[in-house]
Design a protein around this nucleic acid. Structure first.
Lengths: 331, 331
DNA sequence: TTTTCTTACGTTACCGGTAAACCTGACGCA
DNA sequence: TGCGTCAGGTTTACCGGTAACGTAAGAAAA
């Protein structure tokens, strides 16, 4: 029903192979032949079959798989966007999946996706099941781990250090005179990267002699409500805090709302710091103190590193992209 | 290097076909044979080649293509999430793309994606180039158009009416006593659906005898800043407004920030209404007056309609999902 | 006893491209 | 004249599955 190479070859009076070469812009045919083939391909509405091409030429396809923790994350949607823009410009197609912060779901996704023999795979985070690692090592294509830096990546790593984000924020808050800090997190057990920020935060505070006073890590999804109720819980347990560091900006904004509802002045009575650099955070009455993460840049760099590796160019194993602490007015 | 059906067949002393049947859970083999094959498949680390399967069995693959206007849209990321959850549960893989609100980019994407012979395609919106429609009509799989209802869909349509959203908001604001309404939009020329909301809004106001007083449609991306500066421009041109309807919630929040920076009381001096139902909007000091859109539900319904069609079940051509006007405290 | 049915496989052909090897005639050149 | 060379092709053999069909052996039915 749909025209294939052979149909065009028949119509143009040449062989399949010649049509294939013409359509891929190769060499070894005359201008007349090219024009004739092109004309028939056009009029017959030829649509190449990449399934056949990728399968036949055994070299892997132009498919790239990417797995993110959640598709609804504002930050990751920018990463996705960066990846997609870079890849589609180069003729690659993106297959996505979400693992809901679960290494097991990630393994299941990897198993599905490598069955399509993708040219490469992009994963988020550095914690994977042994099965995932095995699967990816046997798959021939490049593997890029983004978001969190890995000391020993499976293959390529693009991101930044969550530990350092937490440490830097702690230093900043200490410089601003904060001495009794709390933390409100989410996704207990599931989110390794949030935990790394907390570790960096806590370690730095402790070294400075002003250890973390209270910590509340919810099992919820990290959203506005979790921030709101998380701060409520934290303050009910330990009212004497002068600053609270949140898992991310959404939660920090939730916390801000709670503080205001309680009549607390921010930042005078209570400092609030977030993480991530959501767009919304910068338009609040008082700009949120936060760490801005290079989301789109990470996506772009990951895609480019992947393609560079595919083309045989030797790229860096680990690419560090800088985060930026945005002082804001709430910390 | 990687084990295939034949390797397993050789190892287990049966034919390729038997291995294929066992692994796909078919019939026509003994328990002993099954166990033996399964054992070898396991130990040899067999990963099926879906490329070959989809190609060989000419029936289309388990790939589903989906194109959204922007990957960074908060609303669409929920739609994507709904689609992905529904599809991955049923064993389908999602290929995504973004068209940047351009029908031409959409056509280019469709051309790329149908080369993979996907089982089906999901598009956002109802405006497509003739080329897109031709390509999709020739492709055999189901085509689902989401987000905006189409009177005559290419195939299946899941969404709601943007015109009605605008009309309903106009009615609501009129009931609240608003008489001099303005509008701030974005993506002039590119966004048909925002334009439909404006039409519904404008038509309803006009019929009630209180026509739209001022309208500012920026060429920017619809974000916080566009809302902020859009309202500034609108008010500089026409200060005597008692309510402003925004393209979406992000812009409305930007507008809210501008109004507050100007010392305007909301809603007393100026009403603000948005559209979309972003999570962030519900945690503001005053809940935003907006229309909540069933994002995840649309994604889920689209995926299910697509799969139902693939399985030959006769589904509805057009599925309407209800939006909900959230009165809030700013309108 | 013969026929038919069923189970449990094996064989064959094919999907639509691509790489690699192989042709062929024209032309240049020693 | 003979040879190499090159443009401009063609032929062949796959890639790894799956559908469709074939078949041998034993069980059940006539």
């Amino acid at each position: 029903m749909k025209a294939n190479l052979e149909d065009i070859a028949l119509a143009a009076g040449v062989s399949k192979m010649t049509v294939s070469r013409v359509l891929r812009g190769g060499t070894g045919f005359s201008t007349q032949t090219r024009d004739k083939v092109m004309k028939f391909a056009q009029t017959m509405g030829y649509v190449p079959n990449r399934l056949a091409a990728a399968f036949g030429a055994d070299q892997s396809s132009t498919l790239v798989g990417m797995c993110v923790p959640r598709l609804t994350s504002g930050l990751f949607s920018h990463v996705l966007d960066g990846v997609d823009r870079a890849l589609s410009r180069l003729g690659y197609q993106l297959m996505i999946g979400a693992n809901n912060h679960s290494a097991e779901e990630e393994e299941a996704w990897v198993r599905q996706v490598i069955a399509w023999r993708p040219a490469g795979v992009i994963l988020s985070g550095r914690t994977h099941t042994p099965g995932t690692v095995d699967l990816l090592r046997e798959a021939t294509g490049p593997v890029v781990e983004i978001w969190d830096l890995t000391t020993s990546p499976i293959d390529i790593s693009v991101g930044f250090s969550h530990f350092d984000c937490g440490a830097e924020m702690a230093q900043f808050l200490l410089r601003r005179g904060r001495r009794r800090a709390g933390y409100v997190g989410a996704l207990a057990r599931a989110d390794v990267m949030g935990a790394a920020r907390l570790e960096g935060f806590e370690a730095t505070l402790a070294r400075a002699g002003h250890p973390l006073v209270a910590c509340e890590v919810l099992h919820d999804m990290p959203g506005f409500y979790a921030g709101y109720y998380g701060l409520e819980t934290l303050l009910s347990r330990q009212p004497r805090l002068d600053v609270v560091y949140f898992h991310n900006d959404e939660m920090a904004i939730g916390g801000l709302a709670y503080a205001q509802s309680r009549g607390l002045r921010v930042p005078e009575d209570l400092g609030i710091a977030g993480w991530g650099g959501m767009e919304a955070a910068s338009i609040l009455q008082r700009r949120l103190t936060t760490t801005v993460v290079p989301t789109t840049a990470i996506g772009k760099a990951a895609a480019e590193a992947l393609v560079a590796r595919l083309k045989g160019e030797a790229g860096q194993e680990v690419t560090v992209l800088p985060t930026r602490l945005e002082p804001g007015e709430t910390g």
